[in-house]
Structures are given as C-alpha cells and as structure tokens.
C-alpha cells in the first residue's frame, strides 16, 4: 500500500472521524447524535472522494457519491423523521452515564490500536486507518449495548458499518462496485426495516425503551 495522494489530508479527516464518533457517544440529545453521525458520514464520503481522485477509478467516485446521498442525507433524514413522528423524548437514556462511557470509549481506542499493531502494519496510514475503524466498530457495539432506545441501537449499528467502510476504502481502495452498491442497498433497506420495526414496537408497547421488552420472554 503506497502512500497515496493527500495522505496528510487523509490523516486529518480520519482524526475528525474519530472525534465525530466520540461526539455521537458523548451527546445527550438524540438530535446531536444524529447530526454527529451525519458529519461522520460526510467525512467518509470525503475520504472516498480522495481515494477516488488518487487512484482515478470511476467506481470509487460512484461509491463516494452514494455514501454522500445515502449515509449523509437519506439515513439522517430518516432518523429525524422517526424521532419526530414517534415524539420520543429527546434526551438519550443510557445504562452507563456519558462521562464513564467516554472513558470506556478511550480504552476501546487503545485496545484497537494495540490489536492492529500486533497484526504488523504495512504503512503508517494503513495502520492508522485500520485502528480507527476497529475502534469505531468496538465503540458502535458498545453504543448498542449501553443505550436503552431502539433508535440509539440503530445508530450504533450504523457506526459499526461506517467503521467497516473506512477500513475497506482506505486499505483496499474499496470493494468491487457491485458489492459496494449491494451493501449500500442493504444499509438503506435495513435502516428502513428497523424504522418500521420501531414504529411497530411503539404501537404495540407504547414505548421504544428496549428495557421494557422483557415481557416478550416466556
């Protein structure tokens, strides 16, 4: 993996992606989380754009545009729509408070960094991107575990997906276009289905607090 065009710019953007992950993790309002996720997706589209520009491959340009449209515009809009329609409480509800969860997030960053280092890194940038994306996957999972609302869990899985996308695009210049388009379609449909499911949960139980779903058990 040679040093590609604008690797300094890539470093800055990856750092910003990391910061936006912590913004999602650290915000008390649902809306702020969603806009932080939107910001993160926008940065991912920028990364895809830079990779496309440096390799000159047309399919990566398409991926960049798809990222921008689906992840940075459509999905955040869907979130805002669901929040508005369900009239959910705007404050996030969590099992672990904001500041301890931020600290745990920091620990996860260190863990992922050491994991990546033990793999044996090829270049500076790739190890940097890989450890960031692994941290994003771990933080997304942590986010899903510690939040009570179904919407937040949706957000967590999208952060995980963003981490995987970052790894794919910055290490291997992206997957084949067909696979990539399939993934985007998957994400979009998955989010829609989750949104519908949340609506159903809401109408059935009159809450989307997953804590209360234990009555489903036998």
């Amino acid at each position: 993996m040679g040093i590609m065009f604008g690797s300094e710019l890539m470093e800055s953007i990856i750092a910003l992606i990391m910061v936006s992950t912590f913004m999602v993790l650290g915000s008390k309002q649902l809306h702020t989380s969603v806009s932080a996720f939107q910001f993160q997706s926008f940065l991912l589209a920028c990364i895809a754009g830079i990779v496309a520009f440096s390799t000159g491959r047309i399919d990566i340009y398409i991926v960049a545009v798809l990222t921008l449209i689906i992840k940075a515009i459509l999905i955040p809009y869907l979130f805002v729509y669901v929040i508005r329609e369900l009239k959910v409480k705007r404050e996030v509800e969590l099992f672990i408070n904001i500041s301890p969860s931020l600290l745990i997030g920091g620990v996860l960053v260190v863990i992922s960094y050491y994991l990546v280092r033990s793999i044996g890194n090829n270049s500076q940038l790739s190890s940097y991107a890989l450890s960031t994306s692994m941290a994003m996957v771990l933080i997304g999972m942590f986010f899903m575990i510690t939040r009570k609302k179904a919407i937040s869990q949706m957000l967590g899985i999208l952060i995980m997906e963003n981490g995987l996308f970052l790894a794919a695009i910055s290490l291997t210049y992206g997957m084949p276009l067909l696979v990539e388009v399939g993934i985007f379609f998957d994400i979009l449909v998955g989010t829609l289905i989750m949104g519908v499911l949340i609506f159903r949960i809401n109408t059935t139980f009159e809450t989307i607090d997953t804590d209360r779903l234990t009555t489903l058990m036998e």
Partner: peptide, 24 residues
C-alpha cells in the same frame, strides 16, 4: 460539568494516542 470535562479529557487523550500512532 463532568460531561464537558470528560469531552475535553477524551480529546486530549485522542491527541496523545494519535501522536503515538503517527510516530509509529
């Protein structure tokens, strides 16, 4: 306030981690 301060702490911590990663 602990939230604000832990955001600051996390930013500083990320800065340290990035410095170390960048130096390889």
């Amino acid at each position: 306030l602990p939230d604000l301060m832990s955001i600051s702490l996390m930013l500083a911590f990320l800065a340290v981690v990035f410095t170390i990663i960048m130096r390889g």
